[in-house]
């Protein structure tokens, strides 16, 4: 049963997120082309009025494309949460909540598909960013070899004593757990917002998210602070390594812990405090 609902949720979210995911790298390519063009113009004719005009117009285009790429994961998450809201807390909720599924299964389906598409859109954003950096910053070669070398071939073997692959993996897991945290926290926010305010559900949801986000940032800041206190025995190599590794690790644990708490709260509210009008 969960699989069936998952199929529908994945499909519904795909409708909005997939075009976004595919368009973002394209926008990045276009922006990169504009960037290359601008750089070429700047190099060949630095100060003529024509080149200034060209540079200014191109810069606007580049700026817009950069903003669009930066905004795309945010828009994707908004689309994901709009599907969440619509299928649960508008009239469609009458259909969803009377399906022969356990309440937590309904939430699971939304979170799994939201998480999946959130990751996909983040990857698209990453790829687009790389396109700008690698493709848009040279004029005569196809790709910027220097940057590629810095990133991949000549990257340092270790970061403050932690081998780079391990540190990289920790950062990846941190990003993944952050995505989960984002989706679950947003889900809880929309749920609380829809329960407390009958007429302004979306507005309340945004307000609740702001509050939850602030609280969790505060908590995580306190935890980090405690971490610093426990390890401030000088700046020797071991301490630095500990600090470097501990930061993403603590963040991962915090994300997972807060997600678990938010998930539990969300399940409880959906089961016991649901009040579709």
């Amino acid at each position: 049963m969960l699989g069936k609902l998952l199929k529908y949720d994945m499909r519904s979210m795909r409708r909005y997120v997939l075009p976004l995911v595919l368009a973002t790298p394209v926008v990045a390519i276009l922006g990169s082309l504009a960037l290359r063009f601008t750089l070429a113009v700047l190099i060949s004719e630095p100060n003529s009025p024509l080149s200034n005009v060209i540079t200014m117009t191109a810069s606007v285009f580049i700026a817009v494309s950069v903003i669009a790429v930066a905004a795309s994961p945010v828009i994707a998450v908004i689309c994901i949460m709009m599907h969440f809201y619509r299928s649960l807390y508008t009239d469609e909720g009458y259909l969803t909540f009377t399906l022969p599924l356990k309440t937590h299964q309904i939430l699971d389906s939304k979170i799994i598909s939201g998480f999946f598409w959130g990751i996909i859109s983040s990857l698209s954003f990453l790829v687009s960013g790389l396109i700008f950096i690698i493709f848009g910053t040279t004029t005569d070669t196809l790709v910027n070899k220097e940057i590629i070398d810095t990133l991949f071939s000549n990257s340092p073997g270790a970061v403050f004593g932690i081998p780079t692959p391990i540190y990289g993996t920790a950062l990846c897991f941190n990003a993944i757990s952050s995505e989960l945290f984002l989706i679950v926290t947003l889900s809880l926010s929309v749920t609380i917002g829809s329960i407390v305010s009958r007429k302004h559900k979306i507005l309340s949801s945004v307000a609740v998210y702001y509050i939850l986000n602030t609280v969790s940032s505060l908590l995580s800041g306190i935890v980090s602070f405690i971490l610093v206190l426990t390890a401030s025995n000088g700046s020797d190599g071991a301490t630095l390594a500990y600090m470097t590794m501990a930061t993403p690790m603590v963040s991962i644990i915090f994300n997972l812990g807060f997600s678990a708490a938010a998930y539990t709260a969300c399940c409880y509210l959906m089961k016991n405090r649901l009040n579709l009008d």
């Binding site: 049963m1 009377t98 022969p100 599924l101 356990k102």
Partner: peptide, 12 residues
């Protein structure tokens, strides 16, 4: 619960 929902048909 989810079991009753499988044999209850609801028209809101």
């Amino acid at each position: 619960d989810e079991v009753t929902r499988s044999f209850v048909s609801y028209l809101p």
